[in-house]
């Protein structure tokens, strides 16, 4: 609300812009955090002082070493360099979360749009199924499925010849991807419902266009903004859920480590009054906050009243 006032806001300095919208400081911070994380993830082998999974032996091995020139963040219970763990852990934590989120979105958007346009029965079946999944607590549901699937790991690995670690990673990705497809389905359905009611979609249907064309050309381009914002949020949830599973010991298994399992393995240091577990925990918190800052900005941009030229 702008109240009549003699004062006119001073013209703001041009500032940083993205897609024609000014990027506020909070979103700039968010982008910076995301950028730093992606940078560490990509260049982990170059940046990390020690190789992945490197366990020193003999005199080099110092348990719970404090920060030093050799180990900037100290070492853990078996003398591994915490900073190297953190850099390599970024690859698993962020990489797996991204793949999982993408899976959730592909499933969620296709089913959500289908529910919105293909008539009452498809909608009822899909929506009730979604309600069923939503009625169960995600973490517990996840734990149950993973436990059940993991119990057959040996047989599956022997039959297909994939590595254990790959199998475990895929289980996590697909289970969470499926569970998180449900909220995406609900959003995609709601967004598409509003667009389907518009006359340009009716015009396309009157023309005789098939459903696939309507989804691809009429609905998808107009539902991008809310879906992009949801992608950011969903990424955070996935990221936190994978970290939580690893922390509970059900996610990434040794020798691989993601941030969740790093926190888990360093947890006892808390009783020794050492800072080691805080680094990975801080990284988890920072990335989540960073993504949220960007999402907040995206949401505020797209929920603003659009004028004629929006």
């Amino acid at each position: 609300m702008a109240v009549a006032d003699t004062k006119i806001p001073a013209r703001k300095a041009p500032g940083i812009r993205l897609f024609g919208h000014r990027v506020p400081l909070t979103a700039q911070v968010g982008f910076l955090i995301i950028f730093v994380n992606l940078f560490l993830m990509v260049f982990a082998p170059v940046l990390a002082p020690y190789p992945e999974g490197f366990v020193p032996s003999g005199s080099e091995m110092v348990k719970w070493a404090p920060a030093s020139a050799a180990h900037w963040m100290g070492t853990d219970s078996i003398g591994r360099d915490v900073m190297s763990q953190l850099f390599y852990g970024a690859r698993l934590s962020i990489g797996l979360s991204l793949i999982t989120t993408i899976i959730a979105f592909v499933i969620g958007i296709v089913t959500g749009f289908a529910a919105a346009i293909s008539g009452r029965w498809v909608d009822i079946v899909l929506s009730r199924f979604a309600d069923l999944i939503l009625s169960m607590p995600t973490l517990i549901f996840c734990l149950v499925i993973i436990t059940v699937v993991m119990s057959r790991e040996a047989g599956f690995v022997a039959a297909t010849g994939v590595s254990n670690a790959f199998f475990e990673g895929m289980v996590i990705v697909f289970v969470i991807g499926f569970l998180y497809a449900v909220p995406v389905f609900r959003l995609a359905r709601a967004v598409a419902m509003n667009i389907v009611a518009l006359e340009y979609v009716e015009a396309a249907r009157l023309r005789g266009e098939n459903i696939w064309w309507v989804i691809r050309r009429e609905i998808l381009p107009n539902s991008i903004p809310p879906l992009v914002a949801e992608f950011g949020l969903r990424f955070c949830f996935t990221f936190l859920l994978i970290a939580a599973l690893s922390f509970l010991g059900l996610g990434i298994q040794p020798p691989y480590q993601d941030w969740g399992s790093i926190v888990n393995q360093n947890a006892q240091a808390i009783f020794l009054g050492k800072p080691q577990p805080l680094f990975a925990a801080g990284a988890i918190a920072a990335l989540t906050i960073g993504v949220n800052l960007v999402v907040d900005w995206l949401l505020s941009v797209y929920s603003r009243a659009h004028g004629e030229n929006a």
């Binding site: 609300m1 702008a2 009549a4 003699t6």
Partner: peptide
Amino acid sequence: ATMGYSRSGCFITGGKIIFRGKDVRT
């Protein structure tokens, strides 16, 4: 504007709106 209100993004930048001898803008 006669109620001293302008929509978001709009600003009353000039003139007087006198309601019963009193300027709404001030």
